[in-house]
């Protein structure tokens, strides 16, 4: 388990990183936290000739909370995101998801951008990005900056639209307006910290009278990419939410899935887990939204 030979370079700025990527092309790979890349290199499943370290670029570690939008640098460490007070208030779903990401030790090194570009279909941060339809900023020397919607970013297992010369620089997430917000993340993994057999997250906004104002719902581990299934929950808008409605949505979502099978879970089992997780995250998010309304009152 020694990586194939590679050259190591350290970039001091985004521009330098992009220049190095442009110079070395598809043989180059960016590294930040290394929590997924290094094991894959050790098993020689990935063998970059050039490893460009962007982990020390301060500009990539920024966290900026504005009234409507949150902007997170690609190299923001997961433990920093999990403990960030302002982010916790603005988008609690991030910290709710991060509890499930690896272990405390891996979160100390792992980054937001690393998790997104790795694009494991059962990973937590890509799922949150898809649910909130994050806008992912990519930069290259040749074409400058472009922004891709998270729902278009992921193209398959371990696969994204990112080009070989591009560096993921930031992730922008909208904060929902108004009161009565609640979110939830839940997953089933065989051991805590393993990749999820299935995962789910939801965010709900309630009107002061308790009717659903807005809802987002997404599922991980049940397809090649994280799935936004908010459309199945759209019928809730303007309605009071109850267990019957929640279960009906979950059933319709699960029926439409064709999850992959592997050593640890069959397709049928994953579908059932997706159903359960839909119910649970909708229920928990609703309870939190209601609690938030009560606090306001």
């Amino acid at each position: 388990m020694k990586p194939a030979p590679f050259e190591y370079l350290r970039a001091a700025s985004v521009e330098e990183a992009c220049a190095l990527l442009a110079a070395h092309g598809p043989d180059a790979k960016l590294i930040a936290g290394g929590q997924s890349l290094v094991p894959m290199m050790a098993m020689r499943l990935v063998r970059p000739a050039w490893l460009i370290d962007v982990g020390d670029i301060d500009a990539l570690a920024q966290i900026s909370i504005e009234p409507d939008t949150v902007t997170l640098g690609a190299c923001a460490r997961q433990y920093v995101l999990a403990a960030h007070g302002g982010l916790g208030a603005a988008l609690p779903i991030i910290a709710q998801a991060l509890i499930w990401v690896g272990h405390e030790q891996t979160r100390n090194r792992g980054t937001l951008g690393g998790s997104l570009v790795h694009a494991d279909p059962s990973a937590e941060l890509p799922l949150v990005a898809v649910m909130l339809d994050a806008r992912i900023g990519l930069q290259s020397r040749a074409r400058g900056r472009r922004v891709v919607s998270a729902r278009e970013f992921f193209t398959g297992p371990m696969s994204t639209v990112i080009e070989a010369d591009e560096c993921l620089v930031e992730v922008r997430l909208d904060q929902w307006s108004g009161q009565g917000l609640g979110s939830a993340f839940d997953e089933v993994a065989i051991r805590h910290g393993d990749f999820a057999l299935a995962s789910g997250c939801a965010q709900i906004a309630l009107d002061p009278d308790g009717r659903v104002r807005r809802v987002a719902l997404a599922l991980g581990g049940v397809a090649g990419v994280p799935l936004d299934v908010s459309g199945y929950a759209a019928s809730l808008v303007g309605q009071f939410i109850d267990d019957t409605a929640t279960e009906a949505i979950a059933r319709s979502v699960a029926a439409a899935l064709d999850p992959p099978a592997d050593l640890h879970a069959s397709s049928e089992y994953r579908r059932a887990l997706a159903l359960t997780l839909c119910v649970r995250v909708l229920r928990t998010a609703t309870a939190r939204a209601r609690a938030s309304l009560t606090e306001v009152a």
């Binding site: 089933v188 065989i190 057999l197 640890h264 879970a265 069959s266 089992y269 059932a272």
Partner: peptide, 8 residues
């Protein structure tokens, strides 16, 4: 006794 076997 795997999770899936128990679930079944």
């Amino acid at each position: 006794m795997t999770h899936e076997a128990l679930w079944v």
